[in-house]
Amino acid sequence: MRRVNRDQRTRINLTLNGRAVSADTEPRMLLSDFLRHALGATGTHVGCEHGVCGCCTVLIDGTAGRSCLTLAVQVEGRAVRTVESLASADGKLNALQQAFQNNHALQCGFCTPGILMSFTDYLAKNPKPSEAEICEVLSGHLCRCTGYAGIVAAIKEATGSK
């Protein structure tokens, strides 16, 4: 049984974007805050802290979830993937990212990392989604700038249905 008392700081070991990392935290620290402030992975954004907006979506053991509804202590020993993992080391965008640029699928870019991570998970499970399926997954994210059309077009391009 693992127990961390409220005022106790504990070391969390995890794999972040393929690399073993660790940092100390209290039990109540949200994963979103932990990633950004303890591990320096600021690509994951915080938009609502109640699980609606989707900005903070990351992959935990390959599955997309809200990092604001997850505690840092819960990812002990797990693999977390964030938007920083998508482009190659020399900055080359992957196909999904490139499709976002091609289709003007972002403006302020704040919601974008969460959307990219959701579809990184979803497209791995369903590489050829219909437009309805794309919209179903995208409806788990709020974007205020684009009106969503460019995002749908980008995902269609990335999945070869455009």
């Binding site: 049984m1 693992r2 127990r3 961390v4 409220r6 109540r28 802290e49 109640h50 505690l71």
Partner: peptide
């Protein structure tokens, strides 16, 4: 919007 402090326990069974 940060939680109040609490003890966290992850039981094995």
């Amino acid at each position: 919007m940060k939680p109040r402090p609490f003890d966290y326990v992850c039981p094995d069974n």
